[in-house]
Design a protein around this nucleic acid. Structure first.
Length: 505
RNA sequence: UGGGUUAUAGUGUAAUGGUAGCACACCAGAUUUUGAUUCUGUUCGUCUAGGUUCGAAUCCUAGUAACCCAACCA
């Protein structure tokens, strides 16, 4: 099937792992934090993780990384599940990092007992100061050398709620002079007296990402834990914790996050757009969120194709939005039922057509025969698009102009005899004659036109409000421009047409 | 100025020492009852400088550029 297609670097790794017998099958996971809606970057990760276990033996878990109760909510859990399903993927197990809070607590105790973790009473400012900078070695916390018993006691008291938020942390004891800032005694647990969307008020201490993610991977026997490039420095800590805890050795692999031109792709920035009302919500059709794309008319198929075409690599990228649009057109071209609509109408009157006559004409629903046909009512007075008429035609113009002929799609050929204008010079009506022998599918007139235009019968038209969406930003990469990314919002990204009667057939 | 990651057409991605290929975009042409679709074609690329080799995008040396790391976020 896709044998011609070369493998990406992750597939290379997996194939060699499978070939060498390191694994008989693989386990991946998609690990969203339920603190926002999924966007196209997530779509990449979803297609990657789920796609890998479609291609190779194994399965993929959905695991919510819910270790920060302050920002997380079940609203997001629900939207995330809906979006993954809509994209066409099924997870093996629905899991939560919070399912493992008891395990993680025991893991912490294990580290303390090994002398590899301690309770720090420094403030966050002190901790930051002692960590120093990447070019300058850090210094040890004054609490670094407490006894194991003391640490065990303090950690239990942290858990029991004896301390206020921010007054104690559990830190791994690694290397304050490491070049990797994450190895300078990283925080493992912090105190947050906050209600958790799943564990309620059971806990007032919560594990940090680094002490939850890798451990959850390990508990689930994840073979290939795939994340984005900014987590590369975390891998050293990921491996350190697994080694010291002597648990299942999951491995982390990193790929470059996906960027799309003329939009932004960070949850923080998307949240700003929502909160500051630059868009109507997470699912605004201009948003690069899955739910926004869905409202915009993108199909799951088109998004999957897009992810597949773009591929996976490790270098920074900004992908042309036009590739995504291409994938959508390719899909829609074969599946979308066509209708005719006139957005900016001018009345066209056929002088030699009977006043009260209505004809039922047949029109194809699309280029593929399987889409079938529909009937269209045709009559003396029609709406046509204002831009399909030119008073003084340009050079290669082959639509309507004074004296010119044009085919009305699926109907007759008409010839423009005259037109009227208002005081301001706007064309108000076009008068035509039609050729009765030129009926579409039954044309014996011998006439030929180069142009074909769409139309809608005035008497039969339905009205609608039309929203025309354009790109949300004026520049290709708003995040890399000077100043605030919001300075580059396209003021014309939404155009609502409702002042005229819009016609739809 | 420490460490890490990455450099191939405008964009994205292949080529694993042996003809730099594919897709999108662009431009041109043909067909067309939606200036769509479809089809054909043109232009355009290995970050730089040295080196190894019969042969280098690939290996070596030295540079350069971009991104990431100093959250009790993930």
């Amino acid at each position: 099937m896709s044998e011609e297609k070369s493998l990406n670097f992750l597939e290379d790794i997996i194939e060699s792992d499978l070939k060498s017998g390191k694994y008989k099958s693989i386990v991946t996971r998609f690990p969203p934090e339920p603190n926002g809606y999924l966007h196209m970057g997530h779509a990449t990760a979803i297609c990657l993780n789920f796609g890998l276990t479609k291609k190779y033996p194994g399965y993929t878990n959905l695991r919510f990384d819910d270790t920060n109760p302050v920002t997380e909510d079940t609203e997001y859990v629900d939207s995330i599940k809906e979006d993954i399903k809509w994209l066409g993927f099924e997870w093996k197990n629905e899991l939560y990092a919070s399912d493992y809070f008891d395990n993680l607590y025991q893991f912490a105790i294990t580290l303390i007992k090994k002398g590899l973790a301690y309770v720090d009473a420094s403030t966050s400012e002190e901790i930051a100061r002692l960590k120093a900078t990447p070019t300058e070695a850090g210094k040890a916390s004054p609490y670094r050398n407490r006894s194991i018993d003391e640490n065990l006691d303090l950690f239990a008291r942290m858990k029991n709620g004896e301390f206020a938020d921010g007054t104690r942390t559990l830190r791994a004891k690694i290397d304050m002079s490491s070049n990797n800032m994450l190895m300078r005694d990283p925080l493992l647990y912090r105190i947050k007296h906050a209600h958790h969307h799943r564990t309620g008020d059971k806990w007032c201490i919560y594990p940090m990402y680094d002490f939850a993610h890798g451990q959850s991977d390990s508990i689930e026997n994840i073979t290939h834990s795939i994340c984005t490039l900014e987590f590369v420095p975390h891998r050293e800590l990921y491996d350190w914790l697994i080694e010291k805890l002597e648990i299942y050795p999951s491995h982390q692999y990193e790929f470059a996050r996906r960027n799309l031109s003329y939009t932004v792709m960070s949850k923080r920035k998307l949240l700003q757009l929502v909160n500051e009302k630059h868009v109507s919500g997470w699912d605004d059709p201009r948003m690069p969120t899955i739910s926004g794309m869905r409202r915009r008319g993108f199909t799951p198929e088109s998004i999957r194709t897009f992810c597949d075409k773009v591929g996976i690599a490790k270098r920074e990228n900004v992908i042309d939005f036009s590739l995504l649009e291409f994938c959508l057109r390719e899909d829609l071209n074969h599946t979308a039922l066509r209708v005719m609509a006139v957005l900016d109408p001018i009345k066209l009157v056929i002088s030699n057509y009977e006043d009260d006559k209505t004809e039922e004409l047949t029109s194809e629903n699309g280029p593929d025969e399987s889409l079938g046909n529909r009937t269209l009512p045709f009559s003396k007075e029609l709406w046509i698009e204002r831009e399909d008429f030119m008073e003084e035609p340009a050079k290669k113009w082959f639509r309507l102009a004074p004296g010119a002929m044009v085919r009305l799609k699926s109907a007759y050929i008409v010839k423009c005899d005259s037109f009227t204008k208002d005081i301001e010079g706007n064309v108000t009506q076009i008068n035509c004659t039609y050729f009765s022998e030129s009926k579409s599918g039954n044309d014996t007139s011998g006439l030929a036109t180069k142009g074909v235009i769409h139309w809608v019968s005035v008497a039969h038209a339905a009205s609608a409000q039309i929203r025309l969406y354009d790109r949300l930003f004026k520049v290709e990469n708003p995040s890399s421009e000077e100043g605030d990314f919001k300075d580059y919002i396209n003021p014309n990204s939404l155009q609502i047409i409702s002042k005229h009667t819009l016609s739809l057939l």
